[in-house]
Amino acid sequence: MSRDTRWKALLELLAAEGGLDVDDAAHRLGVSPATIRRDFDTLAERRMLVRTRGGALPHGVGYDLPLRHKSARRAEEKQRIAHAVAALVRPGEALGLTGGTTTTAVAEALAARADLADGEVEGQALTVVTNALNIAYALTARPRFKTVLTGGVARPHSYELTGPLADGVLGQITLDTAVLGVGALDAAEGAATADEAEAGINRLLCARARRVVVAADSSKLGARAFARICPAEAVDILVTDTGADPEALADLRERGIDIRTV
């Protein structure tokens, strides 16, 4: 097992179980305890976990796992969701995209759409407003996309810009559609994420859009997170995977959400 594969496995186990001890991790990955200790020490130095006596804990309350590792979780579901969301976007729209692994996949799916790249539509094919550095970087190479990046302070794990500078830009624009990546979506508590600064930017995107689309895999449904983005009633469309709990979907439908499962 390569080092990168081992690190990804360790971070996945931490995310799922909330903590690991050295001996258990070594047994489950088939390596020596000394190797796991070195891995834990290195990942702790990179602020990807918190080292404890004899083991490790996730870094931060919300387990803010860097995108390159988060993207491997439920990857197939996220790709299906991303293509379904991208299909909802009409040429010529002004689109808001929050940061996150699923919204990054949405951006990639939009960039791959032939009708937005080959000149079938006159003028600008799409205007994308985002506070995510990685999304802006990926779309800037598309000449028929107008990419607007908010200002703000960059968060190292999610690549998202937050703060008053981002607020100022978003207060001056209007959007046709806002696509949100969320940490949780609950019928009673609404859409939420682990970080209050990111939630504030997402809330502004919702307020400036005529239509709000949440792109979330089934593990996010019926869950709760620290910082609220918007009530469930503010969401127009939810795109999720077929593994979603029927009861959670029924509760969300009662809030008036149009649900698409893929």
Score class of each variant (00 low, 15 high):
M1I: 10
M1Q: 07
W7P: 00
K8T: 14
L10I: 15
E12V: 12
L13H: 06
D21I: 04
D24K: 13
A25D: 06
A25F: 00
A26M: 11
L29A: 02
G30K: 05
V31R: 05
V31C: 13
S32G: 12
S32N: 04
P33E: 04
P33S: 11
T35C: 03
R37I: 11
D39K: 00
F40T: 07
L43S: 03
R51E: 02
G55M: 10
G55I: 11
G55F: 09
L57W: 02
L57M: 08
P58H: 01
G60D: 14
G60V: 03
V61G: 07
V61H: 10
G62N: 04
L65D: 00
L65A: 01
P66A: 06
P66S: 04
A72R: 12
R73D: 03
I81H: 09
I81T: 09
H83P: 00
R90C: 03
P91I: 04
L97D: 02
L97P: 07
G99R: 05
G100I: 03
T102Q: 08
T102G: 02
T103Q: 06
T104Y: 10
A105F: 04
V106C: 08
A107S: 08
E108D: 09
A109G: 07
L110V: 09
A111D: 13
R113C: 11
R113Q: 14
D115Y: 09
L116Y: 00
A117N: 14
D118P: 00
G123F: 08
A125Y: 09
V129D: 06
N131T: 06
N134C: 02
I135C: 04
L139C: 07
G151S: 06
G151D: 08
G152W: 05
G152F: 13
V153D: 12
V153T: 14
P156A: 13
S158G: 06
S158L: 09
E160F: 00
E160W: 04
E160I: 05
P164E: 06
P164I: 09
A166M: 10
A166D: 11
D167L: 08
G168D: 14
V169L: 15
L170S: 09
L170Y: 03
G171M: 08
T174W: 04
A178S: 14
D186M: 08
A187G: 11
E189Q: 14
G190V: 09
A191Q: 05
E198I: 13
I201A: 06
A209D: 13
A209K: 11
A209S: 15
R210K: 15
V213P: 11
A216I: 12
S218L: 09
K220Q: 08
G222W: 03
G222P: 09
G222M: 12
R224V: 15
R224T: 15
A225G: 03
C230N: 01
P231S: 07
P231Q: 10
A232L: 13
V235D: 10
V239G: 06
D245M: 09
D245C: 14
A250D: 15
D251E: 15
D251Q: 15
L252E: 06
R253N: 04
E254T: 13
R255K: 15
I259T: 12
I259A: 10
T261K: 10
V262M: 12
V262L: 10
